[in-house]
Computed example of a mutant assay.
Amino acid sequence: MADTQFDSALDLLRRLSPRDTGRSLQSITTLVPDLTEDLLSSIDQPLEVRRCSKSNRDYLLCDYNRDGDSYRSPWSNEFDPPLEDGTVPSERVRKLEVAANEAFDVYRDLYYEGGIGSVYFWDLDDGFAGVVLLKKGVTPGGKSSGAWDSIHVFEATDRARMSHYRLTSTVILHLANQTDALGEMDLSGNMTRQIETDLPVESDASHIANVGRLVEDMELKMRNLLQEVYFGKAKDVVGDLRSLASLSETNQDRAAHREMINSMGKR
C-alpha cells in the first residue's frame, strides 16, 4: 500500500507546476504523513534561502544539508536550529567542502553575476559525495518575476589514480511576465540530466577541479538546450497563436499582399 501511495504521489507531482512543488509536497504529506521523508529525499523543489547567524552570509536549503528540522550552514558548519548530534562531514571531506564553496562562489559571480550558491559534501564508504546548489532570481517589484535553481548531485568513487564521478543535474526554471499588449505569461518547468565519467586525481584539490569542470559543462549544455529547444518551441507556438497586431490590421496586410501578387502576375 505504501509503495502504491508513493508512486501515485510522484506521478501527481510530475504533473503539477514546479513553481508550486513546495506547496504541493506540504499538501500531500499532510494527507499521508508516512511519505514525508521519502518524498523530501526524492523530489527536487525550488531552493529556499536562510542567513547564517555566525558568518552573516546567505546559504541555500535542501534535503542534503537537512537533519530533522535543522539545516547546516556551509560557512559555519553549524545547524540552525542548533543540534547536538547533527551529521557533519569528516575533517578531510569538510576541508574539501570549504574549498568547493570558495571555488563555486567565484563561479557563481562570473556566470550568474549575483545569486546565491552553496556546496555540501558528505562521506561515503569508498569516497565522498556532494551537491552544488545555485540560485538566481529576478529582482521583485516589477511585472516580471522568475527564478533559476540548479541542483547538481555527484558521487566520487576512489580508484587507483582515478576517480569515478556520477553527476545528476536538475534545473528548475520559472518565468512570469505581464504586459498590456500580451497579458500574463507564465512558463515553468524542470529538466534532469545525468553523466558518468572517470577522471585522473593527483590530490584532493583535483576533485574540486574535476567537479567544477563537470558542473560547468553540464550547465552550459542545459542552458543551450533550454534556449534552443524549449524557449524556441514556446516562441513558435505563441507566435502562431497570438499576434500584437489587431485583426483588421492583419486583414489589411493580407489584402495588400494578395493585390501585390496579382499585379505581378498580370505583368
Rank of each mutant, 00 (worst) to 15 (best):
Q5E: 13
D7R: 11
S8Y: 08
A9Q: 01
A9G: 01
D11V: 06
T21D: 03
R23V: 11
S27R: 08
L35F: 03
L39A: 02
R50K: 15
S53Q: 14
D58T: 13
N65H: 06
R72F: 02
S76R: 12
E78F: 07
P81E: 05
P82M: 09
P89A: 08
P89H: 03
P89S: 04
E97R: 01
E102Q: 15
E113I: 06
G114H: 07
G115H: 01
S118E: 04
F121Q: 01
W122Q: 13
D125K: 15
D126S: 15
D126I: 15
G130N: 09
V132A: 02
L133V: 04
L133Y: 05
G141I: 09
G141L: 08
A147K: 04
W148C: 02
E155F: 01
H164K: 11
Y165W: 10
L175K: 04
N177A: 14
Q178L: 12
T179I: 13
D180S: 12
G183N: 06
D186F: 09
N190C: 10
Q194D: 10
P200H: 11
E202N: 11
N210K: 05
R213P: 03
R213C: 05
V215L: 03
M218S: 14
L241V: 06
L241F: 06
N251Q: 14
E259L: 13
I261K: 13
R267G: 09
